[in-house]
Simulated scan of single mutants.
Amino acid sequence: MNGNRIEVAFSGDLTDPWVAALRNAIHETSTPIDGVVLPQDWSPSPFLSVLVLHRGTLSVAEADRLRRLRESDPSLRVILVVGPHARYHQIMVWSGIVDVLLPEATACETIARYVGQPTHSRIVPAKPLPVALACGQWELGRLLSDALIDAGYAPRRERDNPLHGPEAWVVWDVPVLDPDWSSRLAMAAQRRGVIALLGLANRDTVVTARASGAIACLDLPCDPDDLIYVLDRLTTASRSASLRRDSSHPHRTRSFDRQTRARTPS
C-alpha cells in the first residue's frame, strides 16, 4: 500500500456494460489489466493492495495462476465477482484462493465496501431512523431486524407488504416468483425508497427491479452488513441532500407548513 492509498487492479471484460459499471463503482482509480484473464507473465505493482476479478466462467488454469500469485504475495486481497455460468465445482476451487466472492448482479452495490473504500464515514443517527422491513420469511426477518437495530435503525416489520407505513425507506424481500412483483414494487417506489432483496438475483431481475423503481438491489441470502452499508449510503446521501436544499431555501419549509395548514380543513 502506498501511504494510505489503496491501489486496485481490475480484470474483466470492460466491453460488457455490467463489468464497466462494476469498475466504476470502485471509488478510487483502478488499473485495468489487459485481457479477460490474468496474463501468465503479469507482474503486479509492489504497491498493489487489492485485485478485483470479474469472471463469467472460471478456469482451472487461471486458478492455478492466481494461487501462485497469492503465494508470492500473501498480503494481496482478491475479490472475485462471478457470473451465472460458473459451475459449483469451479466456484468451490476458486473460493479457497480469494478473500471475497460476490455475485455479479448485485456486486455494484457493495464492491466499494469490500475493496476498502467506503463512500462515507458511518454516523449513527442521534435517534433510531425508521425503516420498514417487509419480509414474509420469519427467520430472515428476525435476522435483518436485529442487524438494523444494532446499526441504529428502527425497523417495523410488515409481512411481505412494501406499501404500508409512514417510513421513507422499506427493505423488501421481493417474492420474485409472484407474477406481479414488479408492479407492486413500482407502486411502493412512488412514495418511498425501496431496497429490493432478490432471491438468486440475476441481470434480468435486477434490470426489472431497477426499472420498477428500486433504488438498490441485493441478493438473497443477504449479508446483513451489506444491507447496513447500502442503507447507510442511501440515507446519508438523502439527509445531505435535504440539508443542502434547506440551506438554499431557508424559508421554504415554514412557508410550506403555513400553506398546508391554510389548505387543511379544521
Score class of each variant (00 low, 15 high):
Asn4Trp: 10
Asn4Asp: 14
Arg5Ala: 15
Ile6Ser: 09
Val8Thr: 15
Ser11Gly: 14
Asp13Tyr: 00
Leu14Lys: 00
Pro17Gln: 03
Ala21Thr: 08
Asn24His: 01
His27Gln: 06
His27Val: 00
Glu28Tyr: 00
Glu28Val: 15
Glu28Lys: 02
Glu28Ile: 14
Thr29Val: 13
Ser30Leu: 00
Ile33Gly: 08
Gly35Pro: 15
Pro39Cys: 12
Pro39Gly: 13
Gln40Tyr: 11
Trp42Ala: 08
Pro46Trp: 14
Phe47Ile: 12
Val50Tyr: 11
Val50Lys: 12
Leu51Thr: 12
Val52Ser: 10
Val52Trp: 09
His54Leu: 12
Thr57Pro: 02
Thr57Tyr: 09
Ser59Phe: 00
Ser59Gly: 11
Ala61Pro: 11
Arg65Pro: 09
Leu66Arg: 10
Arg68Glu: 04
Arg70Cys: 08
Glu71Asp: 06
Ser72His: 14
Asp73His: 14
Pro74Thr: 13
Pro74Ile: 01
Ser75Ala: 15
Leu76Asn: 13
Val78Asp: 12
Ile79Gln: 11
Ile79Tyr: 05
Val82Glu: 07
Val82Ile: 05
Gly83Tyr: 07
Gly83Phe: 08
Ala86Pro: 06
Ala86Val: 02
Ala86Arg: 01
Arg87Glu: 12
Arg87Val: 11
Tyr88Phe: 03
Tyr88His: 11
Tyr88Asn: 10
Tyr88Ile: 10
Val93Phe: 09
Trp94Met: 07
Trp94Val: 04
Trp94Gln: 07
Ser95Phe: 10
Gly96Gln: 09
Val98Gln: 09
Ala107Glu: 04
Cys108Arg: 03
Arg113Phe: 01
Arg113Ile: 00
Tyr114Leu: 01
Gly116Ala: 11
Pro118Arg: 05
Thr119Trp: 03
Val124His: 07
Pro125Ala: 11
Pro130Leu: 03
Val131Gly: 07
Gly136Glu: 03
Gln137Leu: 09
Trp138Ile: 04
Glu139Arg: 10
Glu139Tyr: 01
Leu140Phe: 01
Leu140Gly: 01
Leu140Val: 04
Arg142Lys: 11
Ser145Arg: 15
Ser145Tyr: 10
Leu148Trp: 05
Ala151Met: 07
Arg156Cys: 00
Gly165Asn: 05
Gly165Gln: 08
Pro166Met: 04
Pro166Ile: 03
Val170Ile: 05
Trp172Met: 01
Val174Lys: 08
Leu177Asp: 14
Asp178Ser: 15
Asp178Thr: 09
Pro179Phe: 12
Asp180Gln: 12
Asp180Thr: 13
Trp181Asn: 02
Ser182Asn: 04
Ala186Arg: 14
Ala186His: 09
Ala189Arg: 06
Gln190Gly: 12
Arg191Ala: 00
Val194His: 03
Ile195Gly: 02
Leu197Ile: 02
Leu198Trp: 00
Leu200Lys: 13
Leu200Cys: 09
Arg203Gln: 07
Arg203Gly: 02
Thr205Pro: 06
Val206Leu: 04
Val206Pro: 04
Ala209Leu: 01
Arg210Asp: 12
Ser212Met: 07
Ser212Gln: 08
Ala216Pro: 01
Leu218Gln: 03
Leu218Asn: 00
Asp219Arg: 09
Leu220Asp: 08
Leu220Met: 10
Tyr229Gln: 04
Tyr229Asp: 06
Arg233Tyr: 03
Leu234Lys: 08
Thr236Ser: 14
Ser238Ile: 05
Arg239Gly: 02
Ala241Ile: 00
Ser248Ile: 10
Thr253Phe: 05
Arg254Gly: 03
Arg254Val: 09
Asp257Glu: 15
Arg263Gln: 15
